[in-house]
Amino acid sequence: MIWESWSAFWDMGGRGFFVWGSYGALLIAIVAELMALRSARKKALESVVELKRLP
């Protein structure tokens, strides 16, 4: 391992805010996109069910 300890890893040579701020934003963006994909699919399938119910 190139890091002396886990705290050195999280500290990122004093630049933790910038490094983890970047990776954190990516994580949030991915989670948000996955949730949006899921809810859009659910909505689409529900409207097909609606459509089927009509005579």
């Binding site: 890091w3 040579g13 630049r15 490094v19 970047s22």
Partner: peptide, 20 residues
């Protein structure tokens, strides 16, 4: 994060490159 070394000029902050 665990194999690539620290950058000689920029230190650790360069690791943003892997997603930027």
């Amino acid at each position: 994060f665990f194999r690539a070394p620290t950058d000689a000029q920029q230190g650790e902050v360069y690791r943003v490159i892997y997603i930027h």
